[in-house]
Structure formats: structure tokens, C-alpha cells
Amino acid sequence: MSLGRVHNFSISLDGFGTGEGQSRDAPFGHAGEGLHEWMFTTRFWRQLVGESGGTRGLDDAFARQITPGIGAEIMGAGKFGPPGWHEDPEWKGWWGPNPPFRTPTFILTHHPRPSIEMEGGTTFHFLDASPAKVLETAREAAGGQDVRIGGGPTVIRDFFAAGLIDHMHIVVVPVLLGRGVRLWDGLEGLEKDYEVESASSPSGVTHVTFTRVGL
């Protein structure tokens, strides 16, 4: 069976995966881009946006693991758009006409709409269903490859609590947000089911991986 995977998901020292006050002009609320600056300096990211240069060290090695073997993506409504996006029939996500996912991408929302086929192989599907049902649907679309659970923090927390995540890569960024949406609430003790490893980067972030015992 294909795996449920999380990659490159950044949280603050106090556990927030996004800030407060998300809007069309502030996708991560008051956190801005601070949780993701570690990735923007990597060679992987620079190549992705058509630029040269970038670091080749530990951050780059982890960043590159986000794509291989992925056949479908799942994300929450808050990652797809700001509050109220479902009321705008023209809203097609933050990423322009050619989103970076390149796979069937399933949006968990209480406001389903017809699927949207984008450039580059991404098709957005909108489902109002349980995490288990959405994962089952995504696995069918993935054609034997793994499914990436893309976030935000509420979606990852719900899939983690339901035992549906097989491998998770979290990046702990040395900032304090104080408010927003936390990742870890209600997940006490789940680390017992995973092999947990961490590695500190010269950039100041810490990469923490959770791999289900027995994989």
C-alpha cells in the first residue's frame, strides 16, 4: 500500500504551523514567510523558481525529498485559499495557472465544487469527507505511488491522530509566533508509534522525522 507522507512542514518553537490573521494578502497570517526562509535559500527551491545558486547542504537534501514517489496530494481548505475563498468562483489557489503539485490534488472542504484542471498536471478535486475516505480516494488516484499530506497544521494533526501518516518531516524554526494554529495539540504520546530522528542544520532549523515503526 502507498504511504501517507508529510514533507518540509515548518513550525515555530512554540508549535505553530501558521500565524493568526490569514488573508489573501497574508497566506500565513502574521507569521509571514518566516517559517519558510530556510527552504528559500536552498538550491532545490532556487531551481524550482527558475533561479541559480542556493545552498547544497542538509536543508537542500531534506527539501528535495518532497517530490520523489508522490502520486497525489491532500490539503486543507486553509492551504488552498484564504477564509471565504469558496464564495469566489474564480479562485483557483495561490499558485497561479501552473501549480507545483503536478498530481491529482484533493482539497478537504465543507464547500465542494467541480474539479479544476490546471496546467502542468495538477487537477484540484474538492471533497467533504473524513481523512480516511479522502486518503482512500487519493491512493486510488496515485496509481501505487505515495500520497503527500500537504497541510495546513489542522489537516496534518487530524491525519496524524487518525493513524494515517506513515512518514512525517517537520522543520522546527527558531522563531516564536505566540498565536496561530498549533500542530501538536491533542497528539500526546503518538511518538511511541514512530521512530523519531532529528538533525540540526547550520541555518538554525532542526529537521525532525517520524517514521512508523515497522516500515
Rank of each mutant, 00 (worst) to 15 (best):
T18N: 13
G21Y: 09
A161N: 11
A77T: 15
G84T: 10
E119P: 08
A26K: 14
A129Q: 13
G180A: 04
F44K: 01
N8K: 11
I74L: 07
P89Q: 06
R182E: 09
I156S: 14
R64T: 06
G4H: 03
P82F: 10
S52Y: 08
G178Q: 04
R148I: 06
R212I: 13
R139C: 03
A132L: 12
P153N: 11
S12N: 04
V173I: 14
K192Y: 02
F9V: 01
A31K: 13
T103Y: 06
L58T: 10
W91Y: 06
A132W: 10
R157Q: 13
D185Q: 11
K79A: 13
F106K: 05
A141W: 08
A142D: 00
T137F: 07
S52P: 02
G54Y: 04
F210W: 02
S2M: 13
L183V: 03
Q22G: 06
T209Y: 01
P83D: 07
G21S: 05
S198N: 11
F80T: 13
I156M: 14
T55D: 03
T67Y: 12
I165G: 04
T103P: 02
T67K: 09
F101T: 10
G152A: 14
G76H: 02
S23N: 09
G19Q: 04
S201M: 04
D185S: 11
L108W: 03
H125G: 04
I11V: 12
F210L: 15
P174I: 12
T67H: 03
I116G: 09
M168G: 13
T154K: 10
H167K: 10
A161S: 12
W38L: 02
G78Y: 07
N98H: 12
F28R: 11
E136W: 09
A72G: 05
Q65P: 04
V49G: 08
P27V: 00
S115R: 15
G21V: 10
H36N: 14
W38V: 00
L48M: 15
T18F: 06
G180S: 05
F124D: 10
L187I: 01
Q145P: 06
H86K: 06
F9M: 14
P99K: 05
L35T: 01
Q65W: 05
F80H: 05
G143C: 05
L164K: 08
L187C: 11
L135A: 03
G214K: 01
R157V: 03
D25L: 06
A61R: 15
P153V: 15
G76P: 01
P202Y: 04
Q145E: 01
P104T: 02
D60Q: 08
H125S: 12
T122W: 00
I116H: 04
S198D: 08
D25I: 06
M75S: 03
E51C: 07
F28D: 05
I66R: 14
V205Y: 12
F40L: 14
W184H: 14
L35S: 03
P97A: 13
R5Y: 00
G121K: 09
R148A: 15
W184T: 13
E20I: 12
E191G: 10
R46C: 01
A72V: 02
H207K: 11
T122F: 00
P153I: 04
S2C: 08
V171P: 01
A77V: 09
H30P: 10
W85K: 05
T18P: 01
Q22F: 07
R24L: 15
A142Y: 01
Q65H: 07
A138T: 07
